[in-house]
Design a protein around this nucleic acid. Sequence first.
RNA 1: GCGGAUGUGGCGGAACUGGUAGACGCACUGGAUUUAGGUUCCAGCGCCGAAAGGCGUGGAGGUUCGAGUCCUCUCAUCCGCACCA
Length: 854
Amino acid sequence: MARYSPKEVEPKWRAAWDEAGAFHAETGSPKPKYYVLEMFPYPSGQLHVGHTRNYAMGDVVARFKRARGFNVLHPMGWDAFGLPAENAAAERGVDPAAWTWDNISRMREELKRLGLSIDWSRELATCDPAYYGRQQAWFLKLLERGLVYRKEGQVNWDPVDMTVLANEQVIDGRGWRSGAVVERRKLTQWFLRITDYADALLDGLKTLDRWPDKVRLMQENWIGRSQGLRLTFALSHDGPIEGVSVYTTRPDTLFGASFVAIAPDHPVAERLADGDSAVSAFVATARKGGTSEAEIESAEKLGWDTGLKVIHPFAPERLLPVWIANFVLMDYGTGAIFGCPAHDQRDLDFARKYDLPVTPVVLPAGEDATVFHVKQEAYVGPGRIYNSGFMDGLDIEAAKTAAVARAEALRIGEGATVYRLRDWGVARQRGWGCPIPVVHCGDCGVVSVPTDQLPVRIPQGLDFTQPGNALARHPTWKHVSCPRCGGPAERETDTLDTFVDSSWYFARFTDVDAETVIDKDAADYWLPVDQYIGGVEHAVLHLLYARFVTRALADEGMLSVKEPFAGLFTQGMVTHETYRRQSGEWLEPRAVDVRGEGLDRRGFAADTDEPIVIGDAEKMSKSKRNVVAPGDIANTYGVDAARLFVLSDSPPERDVQWTSGGVEGSWRLVNRIWAEFDQDSGDDSPDGIDEAATLALRRHTHKAIKAVTETIEGFRFNSAIARLYEFVAVVRTARSSACSRQSRHEALSALARLVGPFAPHLAEECWLRLGESGLLATAPWPEWDSALTEDDEQVLPVQINGKRRGEVLAPRGATSEEVQSLVFQNEDIVKRLEGLTIRKVIVVTDRIVNIVAA
RNA sequence: GCGGAUGUGGCGGAACUGGUAGACGCACUGGAUUUAGGUUCCAGCGCCGAAAGGCGUGGAGGUUCGAGUCCUCUCAUCCGCACCA
């Protein structure tokens, strides 16, 4: 018996699949379609184990569905624009395009080595003019429809990457890539009107029943729809302004108002600051923060009394002061609020600091209106409205309705829906990206590049050695004549956010060679993606943008689906322990020798034998050197063992910790499986067939088929692999009994096919050894016979007062009476019951018996 | 602060609608083969206990014949949002 040799076996089968075109997806096939997609990678040039896990999951699904008779589309592409290429260009003087394409070809080879069942004829790269040119085409369509606009506004500026970021890309006040503290700047920017789709995107979430609740919730919160009242407070006397418009979700507390506050960026504040150095000094202080860490931590409320007074809309005799306050945000609602300190904690903090009145208007049940007070904690619970004129006695909801109605009747406000979601700023000041295909003309303004002149290509020879936008610095590229008037004009030098590139690639995959942006027939056939797989880190960013663009393109008539991804699965990361010398230097796993277990587990440097600090398992990263290269693993154990391991140790949605022991376990499984095939299956025993053993083997086979099928369908790959371990053990044991030749063949044939999605090369080799014709990759999935998945007899545990005290062997489906008679014939149990009075006997068919006795 | 998730052996984790807790893997222990083995095979492995038995799914209550699973409270960890009016 030869040891299984992945080095020889694996390449052989990859070539065979290629040659047979086994993974070619035929658009329009009458078979039911199934589109499985993993989030496409950035071509960094190096595959890591995280990729291996992500793509192995998709491949399990793809291979399984193919075997189940589906016409499967499983494509691969490259999210190829982005800063790393510019950084490489700056550091090494290479051309970003050359660098990127080079990485792509390297990574393609590494990915192919994983044995993924991908239709490589559909490969695409976002940096290919054939792709981004079509992106420019639909961008212009959206521009025509008013979904793209330019606006001067406050933007998030990443001082390290020297570019603008969308709100979604600012995390804890820092750039999502660079980690640098983001600054606020005023710039003219390109926006996509995603807010037009806020309701649609929110409502659409309800239809995504195969998405994780967590992701839907995150998107829901991100969109942040709220219902309230927009209301204008009129100025009490003539002044520099007419009034202040505020937004509130608590119009029921209007009678508790004791001040109006506006944001430091509010036009009124800016007007007042203009020419008043004291005001402008305050505005500058208040505005400073919002992003810096210190500012976020100290939530100190700052205010400035403008001296202006506004009239309470429902009680004109009352005047409220207008303050400028740092806790009011310009970009939410109207940038102004009314303060009701009794029922809002922030307003209360502010009121206490500046000694403003606190008037409760919501009375909690059981409190006495004459003594109820709000001290340091605002009351935000339910209750009855009081101190509130026409709203007195109403509950909160009724009062809200009444307040809105009154405001509308007085023509000073109206019910309003407000969103947290802002429009998507898509322009980036970068050279290595999809150019925004417009021209600025002094006479005609912004002019679209005519369709027949697309794609607007990135020019050769950009200079990336200086920070900032290389495209803008190019000596000639931007100088063109206006497509409309022919006069001198300049190209737009901003490029599109790379999230635009990834917001429609799944549609392009349905026909990568389409002359149009998207081939409608192909898209209608394949979309939506049935199963999308990727990291949770894209829960809001990519997944929200892709949903938006899909709807926008659908409204443009390019697509029929409204939601791109019918099923979503968010997989966990691959982590590894971290190792550090006493000096603080990080060590690679291979440079560390780990001994002992539990609390005595210690690490030593392989070179000096000095003690090493073993840190927690963390996401693999270059900086901590806790990285294991998939290539190295494949060289040692083969890719099948690596695929098995990344899926076996943890449920797919959770992180998995890479351990060398773990892969070795998978490698043992590979060999154990092979050992079952690598021998003469032989003839039936001359002494006759053991019918009982044969039946037992067949039952195990059918149970295994059922269990593996159901666990794959439920995305419980770790459990599926556990069932494989068990089944191999059964098959091995059966070798020593006289099972029929036929039953052995049935078992092995099933085993090979069940292994197929996880360890496809091994499975093919087994299939060949079994003498089956054709590729296992295109063979049908085994079926199970439900008559064989359940035993005729089973052991029923017998409990006395809920504690297990024995067991009986009962036929399947035995009635309560039958089971009870067996139980009371059982000596052990009878002995246990001596001296006790039986109160009740519960028999759960085929499950358990519980005797209640005292 | 708001919202959400998760707590099970030395470790990763199983357990479908409440029904034998700890499948499967790792680590470990003993044995066999080989003895160059860090190979392979067999067995053991939640805790206490010699055993009988008892105790065990973060903690405290509760519902139930029966709870890892359901309910209430609580603690811890992780994630998302964060002065959102």
